[in-house]
Simulated scan of single mutants.
Amino acid sequence: MSSILPWVGGFAAVLTSLSYIPQVRKALPRSSTKDLSLKMLVVLTSGLGLWIGYGLLKGDWIIVLANSIGCALTATVLGCKIRDIRGEDSA
């Protein structure tokens, strides 16, 4: 049973990490993040960063890798959201 655990964790990591890709694709065009919450993106990106730290402390590469990908993708969406907010303020 324990030999299947890394595979289950790895598959879960791939699915959850890649789930952010459609949101990134939607957020990349300017003014496309109006329906996204800034607070949610800050909290989610921060939480994923903390999971990276947790994974490093535990020495669990699946946790580190999955959350690094997720954090990079959500940080991209967060960056797009901030870009769009700044664009609204200067308009």
Rank of each mutant, 00 (worst) to 15 (best):
C80M: 09
L73S: 01
A72T: 11
S37M: 07
I4H: 10
K34D: 13
G10I: 08
L48Y: 07
L65E: 12
G59F: 11
L48F: 05
I63E: 02
L73G: 00
I85E: 00
K58D: 12
L15I: 09
W7D: 15
L78N: 00
G9K: 07
A27G: 00
K39S: 13
I62F: 00
A66C: 01
R86F: 01
D60E: 10
L15S: 10
D84Y: 01
R86N: 10
W61T: 06
N67W: 03
V42I: 14
Y54R: 12
G53D: 02
Y20G: 04
L15K: 06
L5R: 14
L15P: 06
V77N: 05
G49A: 09
G55F: 03
T76K: 03
L78E: 04
D60V: 02
I21M: 06
P29W: 06
G70E: 01
G49F: 13
A66V: 05
D35C: 08
T45K: 01
G70Y: 05
L36P: 00
L38F: 13
A13I: 05
D35A: 10
K34I: 08
S3V: 11
C71P: 02
A27D: 00
G59I: 14
T45E: 10
V77W: 04
A75D: 02
R83D: 11
